[in-house]
Design a protein around this nucleic acid. Structure first.
Length: 430
RNA sequence: GUGGCCGUAGCUCAAGGGCAGAGCACCAGACUGUGGCUCUGGGGGUUGCGGGUUCAAGUCCCGUCGGCCACCCCA
């Protein structure tokens, strides 16, 4: 055990896992581009105020889980615990309401929450997220949610099922909350302590309780869906119907409740049960009130955030991560010091020709170089300095087949191009 | 934040009060100019860290740090 470890809940990503990340992220970007989303990169830190207002002061995230610190001038800054607040802050700050609407943005970014770590829950994690700003139509909800679902499907996951709910809007939610509170107040003496606490802090979360007696009470609780105003009702029905038109499995789930205050109407989640308690692959919804809270013009918005650590965990478990070809193709070996310069030149030449090539850096014997070549995963070894080989030629050895032949050095790139052309190769070296 | 399980070599794990080990991995050599297979040798550890009990502590006790599981919360 080394003296220093990565901070709790944070981890190093080493090869070949780092290569799987490159693959995953590039797939996410590709899907976002197909849907017409463009990348936004916001600062890793924001003024704490942005999250207090944007995420909500009563939420666990803001109250217990933020990395908040004072900079040298005494300003209170926080590492972002989620992506939406920063994106909307940027939308307002840069006057994006003057851009052609809607504005569709995506990000792949690190988030920080001071939470108790567990597999699939990290203090530093990566989210792929997307937001549609300036569109109140159900079509916008369907656009982002389908991006999330289709991305998971494109990665190979079957059985992606969207749990869909509506949390209403400022017109209908207060009335519902009133009825909701009254219902649970009436059963107060039978509630567990957690739920009593939540009745004050985050009442809708009671619906999520794992305590059986509370669940029983919750089953009889009034449901937001029965209290939606006509506009919210129509919106919910349209989102649901359009997702079904796309063939996306939808399950109406009154228990999907977002922990963040700015959500209105649509609330959606996708779970992957095999992940255990940390099973949410993505969560998202509509936040029509957020831009105003952050000092901007009233701007409807809808988006999602997807936890990529969890997605990658699932993909690996399901064997859906392909072999990656980022390893080297050619390893140049030489037979001792007199040939070092020539080997060096040759490696440089091959790299210049676009091949992934490397040579010995340890002054090793020819035998050890071949061993290194073999273990590097390279398909080809080139031998420089073998006696009886005419000047200008080198030995090209196929490490898979075990055969070798003479090739003029300057023709190596062309020969290798031809050889590699036909057969795909694996080369991550693992 | 609450409760539980677990920390021994780079990795996977033995040793359960009495000399800290194996397999894999890594390095070198042999099988004669050239890898994979096989064989030989080598480097690697304050047993996560700190304290305590004991003649003696990976081993028992306490604390702490870290991982995992459930809760909480969420992606």
């Amino acid at each position: 055990m080394s003296k220093y470890q990565a901070p709790r809940g944070m981890r190093d990503v080493l090869p070949p896992e780092s290569e799987r990340w490159q693959w995953l992220v590039s797939r996410c970007r590709e899907m976002a581009h197909r849907y017409g989303y463009r990348e936004i990169r916001t600062p890793l830190v924001e003024h704490t105020e942005v999250f207090l207002k944007g995420v909500g002061e009563g939420t666990d995230i803001v109250e217990h889980e933020m990395y908040t610190f004072a900079d040298r001038a005494g300003r209170s800054l926080s590492l972002r615990p989620e992506g939406t607040a920063g994106v909307v802050r940027a939308y307002v700050e840069h006057g994006m309401h003057t851009w052609p609407q809607p504005v569709k943005l995506y990000y792949v970014a690190e988030m920080f929450r001071y939470d108790r770590p567990q597999a699939g829950r990290y203090r530093q994690h990566t989210q792929f997220g997307a937001e549609v700003l300036g569109a109140a139509e159900p079509a916008a909800d369907v656009d982002v949610l389908s991006l999330a679902v289709r991305t998971l499907q494109a990665l190979g996951l079957r059985e992606v099922r969207v749990h869909l709910n509506s949390v209403g809007d400022p017109k209908c939610r207060p009335g519902y909350l009133q009825v909701f509170r009254e219902y649970f107040q009436a059963h107060y003496d039978r509630l567990d302590d957690d739920s009593r606490r939540r009745l004050v802090t985050n009442p809708l979360r009671i619906l999520d309780s794992k305590v059986e007696q509370t669940r029983e009470i919750a089953r009889g609780a009034p449901r937001m869906l029965d209290y939606l105003c006509p506009e919210c009702r129509a919106h919910f029905d349209a989102v649901r119907r359009h997702l079904e038109v796309l063939g996306i499995a939808v399950e109406v789930d009154p228990l999907v409740v977002r922990g963040l205050d700015y959500y209105t109407r649509t609330a959606a989640e996708v779970h992957y049960p095999k992940l255990g308690a940390q099973s949410t692959l993505f969560g998202g919804g509509r936040y029509d009130g957020l831009a105003e809270v952050l000092g901007g013009p009233p701007t409807p918005g809808v988006g999602f955030g997807m936890g990529l650590e969890r997605v990658l965990m699932v993909l690996e478990e399901e064997g859906l991560v392909p072999e990656l070809a980022t390893g080297i193709q050619v390893y140049v070996c030489h037979d001792g010091p007199p040939w070092e310069d020539e080997a060096l030149r040759l490696v440089d030449f091959l790299r210049g020709a676009g091949l992934r090539a490397e040579g010995d850096l340890l002054g090793r014997s020819l035998r050890a170089q071949l061993r290194a070549a073999s273990r590097s995963g390279a398909r080809w070894a080139v031998l420089v300095g073998v006696p009886e080989v005419p000047r200008g030629q080198v030995v090209l050895r196929d490490l898979q087949v075990g055969e070798q032949r003479l090739v003029p050095a300057e023709q190596l790139p062309r020969v290798l191009q031809e050889e590699e052309g036909g057969c795909g190769r694996t080369g991550a070296g693992s």
